[in-house]
Design a protein around this nucleic acid. Sequence first.
DNA 1: TTGTAGGCGTTATCAC
DNA 2: GTGATAACGCCTACAA
Lengths: 347, 347
Amino acid sequence: MRDQNGNSRKRRGSGRATIHDVARLAEVGSITVSRFLKQPDLVSAELSLRIAKAIAALHYVPNMVAGGLASTRGRVIGMVIPNISGPIFANTIQSFSDVLSQHGYQLLLASSYFSIEQEENAVRAFLGWSPAALVVTGQYHTKATEQLLATASIPVVETWDYQPRRKPIQVGFSHYEVGQQAARYLYDKGYRRIAFVQNSIAGDISALDRRDGYVAVMQEHRLKPWIFIPNEAAPFESGKQAIDALTMRKHPAEAIIFANDNLVAGAILAGQRTNLRMPEHCAIVGFGDYAMSSLLLPSLTTIRPPAKEMGEIATLRILETLGEISVEKKVRRLNRLTCELIQRESA
Amino acid sequence: MRDQNGNSRKRRGSGRATIHDVARLAEVGSITVSRFLKQPDLVSAELSLRIAKAIAALHYVPNMVAGGLASTRGRVIGMVIPNISGPIFANTIQSFSDVLSQHGYQLLLASSYFSIEQEENAVRAFLGWSPAALVVTGQYHTKATEQLLATASIPVVETWDYQPRRKPIQVGFSHYEVGQQAARYLYDKGYRRIAFVQNSIAGDISALDRRDGYVAVMQEHRLKPWIFIPNEAAPFESGKQAIDALTMRKHPAEAIIFANDNLVAGAILAGQRTNLRMPEHCAIVGFGDYAMSSLLLPSLTTIRPPAKEMGEIATLRILETLGEISVEKKVRRLNRLTCELIQRESA
DNA sequence: TTGTAGGCGTTATCAC
DNA sequence: GTGATAACGCCTACAA
């Protein structure tokens, strides 16, 4: 039974042209069409031409679902990120997605909101799609996630963190060292009463690593670590709360390291209101280098994570593991990236 | 031939437990397992229990790819957005993805960088995944995209724009009216020499609609429209260039509408350097209400698009069309959202 | 270089 | 309420 296009009428089908329709029109075997699409070198020029015409005539779009099922490995790659809309991760997603789509892979995205339980759900959901690879954020996961990732037998990349001797491919940086970097910078500038303001989001474990780096440097110099934990939920409010608590006291902080630039934004706004001058009264170092960080008054001295680079390199490492490309040795060793301290007005 | 788990050894397979493995362990037919997962009401309590146990024992994760192939409609939804990392669209993505995943759908994401050709590529790639629905940004597409969307016979949603009498489901707002809104606001404040600064990104067609709205209001009042087109690529630079050109002249602009807040950020920084006082010397209205907009000095009067709402409502409309949920009539009519003018210091 | 047979894991269809 | 069977559209394996 044929419909008006000469296609066989299917009981269930999607209605779209299939590889068989193309093959019939081009008068070749379907497998030749498949080869034409995947390994064009193996198909003769003559058949290639006929096939190309048939594809165009039928508006054929290969069914990736069927292909994925047949090859038991789909051309999707899942990515779990704490926060899609956060200023910090968007660049990683963007560059990841861009490089990926150039190689015919699609990005499946989910957000965990810094909850490792939500991350587990996302990973579980992704696995149902037989992804070619998975990308997660950070090194801290639930036991179940660890196990899912281990048994998935696909490339797994951890971004936004770095820990030697871990199984997954790492493309990130050491948060601990970022904490050290910030503390040393301030110490070297002569500050001694240096405080650290934690993130208001409890699930942000990486921020605790940065705190630990700060603590280590303080102890190195026999200074007492001074940690402030905001009890506000909103980042701006937390920042305000922190700077008030740390500066409006008898022995105020000379310098403050904030867990991220969002907190700083709140702090700086509060400072403008109270005429707190930075860095004269209090120096500030943030983390993240968000778009706004250079626009604040004072502009913000902060540590810039290699967000875009992580996305790019993660993709390259994945594509290499999948045999899609071969990358230089240089790239293959780029597990551990570094953050740059951007010196501006606030410290 | 069975392996150690009692599963039949497959020549190709993924190695994961299949619905058949579950069925065998639970001693039921595979279709009953399928029903247990999709329509639990139709399965007796006794079998349900056995199946649940088997699923847990085997760590069974349904293969969505196979399911998608069999049902010719996968549980993925594709979304094309101009810019993932842009401050403006991220909220739409986030809320869209969140509601979606609550209903068991996955988000496929691609960015167009304001190029309708890239959008076409993305749509084509998405269609290969038999998505349950597609979301695109804006109402301007290539002919081919229009055709792809029309023949896909799946729900299509256009966000971030609104145009009556278009075929796709619309969840957005009128950029033309936003342009009018900004112009009227400034006119009502007494400004007459009002200029409009276009976006430096040529592909941002919606920004031209905003410009047209501004032009219309100016002509309404018999004022001469004054449009500045930056020739810089970078938004901050464009903003600086624009404010310099529009204010450092004999008859400077009294007020400026910028195509977006990124441009304004550059302009305000330039103004701080030249001691241009806003709004005294020049009032400014932006568009987007980015995170930084309230932090600038002066804080920015701007028009806030309903980014999060668009994502949420788009998802609801899609899920409703797919028969997943039923929404109130109220929501069903929410095609046209409105933008709020946020009054701050700059105008 | 090209083709044939059969499987990938699930669901639609129909029968009991 | 439950199950057998046949698609779904492509790809791997093997053959010619």
